[in-house]
Simulated scan of single mutants.
Amino acid sequence: MTPAARVQAAIEILDAVIAAAKAGGAPADRVFSEWFRMRRFAGSKDRRAVRDLVYNAIRACGPIPESGRAAMLRLVQGDEALASLFDGGRHAPEPIDPAEPVALGGVAPAWLERALESSGVSGEEALALLDRAPLDVRVNALKAERDGLVLPVEGEPLPARYGLRFPANTPVESWDAYEQGLVEVQDGGSQLTCEAVAALPGETVIDLCAGAGGKTLALAASMAGKGRLVACDVDRARLQRLAPRAERAGAPLIETLLMNPNRELEALADLVGKAEAVLIDAPCSGTGTWRRNPEARWRLSEKELARVTGIQSRLLDIAATLVKPGGRIIFVTCSLLDAEGADQVQAFLRRDSRWQADVLDLPAGQPRGAGVRMTPARDGTDGFFVARLKRV
C-alpha cells in the first residue's frame, strides 16, 4: 500500500468505527481486524501504519466525528506531510476542501468533559487519559517470583508487588512463560486493586464481577492456593474463559458461579454471611481505560452512566449480605468519575451503618473520598478508584 492508500484505508475504517460507536456495535480493534481480514493483500507494515493512523485520529477527536474523513482531517491539522497525501490519486483520498467539516478536538464529548472536571480531572490529568498505555504483567506467585524470573525482555518493576512493565505491543502471549502460567497480562493499577483486597490463605473470598477472571487469578495467588475463592458473573461466555486460565495458572481452588441478572442472591444463597472478603470490580463507564479503548468515550451517554451507577449501588448492597462481621468489601471501578467512586461509596456508607471505610496504604494513588484514585498522569496506571469497607 502507498502512504496515500494507507490514509484512505484509515478513513474507511474510521467510518466503520464511528458507525459501530453510534449503534453500540463492535469495538474499534474488532472493526480494524475485520476490515483487514477482507483485504489480505495488505502486509504487516501496512496494518501497523494504518492502525497508528486510525488510533491517532480517534485520540485527536473529542466528540464523535461526523465521518472518518472529518476525523482524519483533525489529525492532518499542522501535519503538512500527511495533508499532502490527500491528492486524489489512485487509492488516495480526495484533495482537501478548506470548507469541509473537521472533527472537533478535546478529551471527550462536552458533557463528559464537564463530569470529569467536576471530579477533579482536567488539564494534563485529562489529556493523559488518551496517551498510549504500556503493557504490564503480573508474575504468578503460585509458580514464580518476580526477582530472578528470566523473560525474553527485561521488564521494569512496578509498585505492585509482582508487577513488571514492558513496551506496548510486546508479544508476551507468545512467550513460554505465559504458556506455562508464570505471567499474566494485567495493568499495574489493576494489580494494586487486588492487593487492596488483602486476601489471605484459608479465607473465603468472592469475586462478585469476575468476568474472565484477571483479578480472580491475582487473588488466588495472594491466597497461596488455599481457601475458597468463588468467581461470579452474569456473563456465561466470559466466565467460561476462566477455567483454562486457572488451570494454566495452577489455581484449582477457584470455583465459578453463574448468576442470573437481577437475581444474583438466588445463586449466592449459601454464601450469605460467610465471606471474609468480597471484591466488586463493578461494571462502569470505563473512563479510566481510554488509553486502551479511546473510542469508548464516544459510546458513553448520560443514560448509560446512570444505568451503571445503579448497578454499582445494587452490587454494594448484595456484597453487604455476603460478608461476615469483621469482613470487608473492596469496591473497584476503572473510572475517574466521582459518581462511580467517592460518591458511590459515600452513599453506601450513609444507607448502611454497619460499615465504615478502612484505610488503604497503597504505593500509588491519591486519597479521594473514602478511597484511593489512581490516574495515568500521576501513577502511570489505568484510571481506578478503590475503597475498602469494613463491617463493624
Rank of each mutant, 00 (worst) to 15 (best):
G341M: 05
V332E: 10
R328M: 12
L257V: 01
E100H: 02
T193F: 04
E154N: 03
E264N: 02
T204P: 00
L158E: 11
A319R: 02
G365R: 09
F32H: 11
L316N: 01
A16M: 14
E117S: 12
R146Q: 01
E340M: 05
V137K: 02
E340Y: 03
A221L: 08
A141F: 02
G188P: 10
R245V: 09
S44T: 15
A377I: 01
A57D: 06
G88K: 05
R114P: 02
A83R: 14
E34L: 13
L316Q: 07
G369W: 08
V7E: 04
V54W: 01
G189E: 11
D79F: 00
G250V: 09
L85I: 04
A370G: 06
G383F: 01
S190M: 09
A177T: 07
Q356N: 11
R236A: 15
Q240D: 14
A19N: 09
A83C: 10
V7Y: 02
M1D: 05
R132Q: 14
G380P: 09
D79K: 15
A243N: 12
S222E: 14
A81N: 15
D187Y: 11
T309K: 11
L208F: 05
K324H: 12
R165N: 11
I64P: 00
I329W: 03
I318R: 06
V153Q: 15
S67L: 08
L316C: 02
K274P: 00
P325E: 13
D317Q: 08
D361R: 15
D97A: 04
R40K: 13
A296N: 08
L112H: 08
V197N: 12
V332Y: 10
A220M: 10
P252M: 07
T333K: 08
E340F: 00
P3C: 08
N262R: 15
Q191D: 05
S122Y: 12
R228W: 02
W290D: 06
A10M: 04
R238L: 10
A4S: 15
A103V: 02
L130T: 03
A92D: 13
L192S: 00
V107D: 05
D87Q: 12
P63A: 11
R48M: 14
P167A: 07
A357D: 00
R74G: 09
A243G: 13
D187N: 10
E145I: 04
V372P: 04
A20I: 12
D270M: 06
V172F: 02
A5W: 03
T2L: 11
L239P: 14
L182D: 03
Q356A: 14
A357L: 11
I254A: 11
A267E: 04
R30S: 01
S44N: 13
A275C: 06
I280Y: 14
E295K: 06
A9S: 13
A342Q: 11
L239N: 13
A243Y: 03
E195T: 11
L305M: 14
E266M: 06
P261Q: 15
T289W: 01
E264H: 12
N140D: 01
G89R: 01
S67Q: 09
T375D: 05
P294K: 03
L362R: 12
R299V: 08
W35V: 08
L53T: 03
D207E: 12
N56T: 10
A364R: 14
S190G: 13
K274L: 14
R69V: 09
E247R: 13
L258D: 06
Y55D: 03
Y162Q: 14
I13M: 06
L336Q: 10
D46T: 09
L258F: 07
S335D: 01
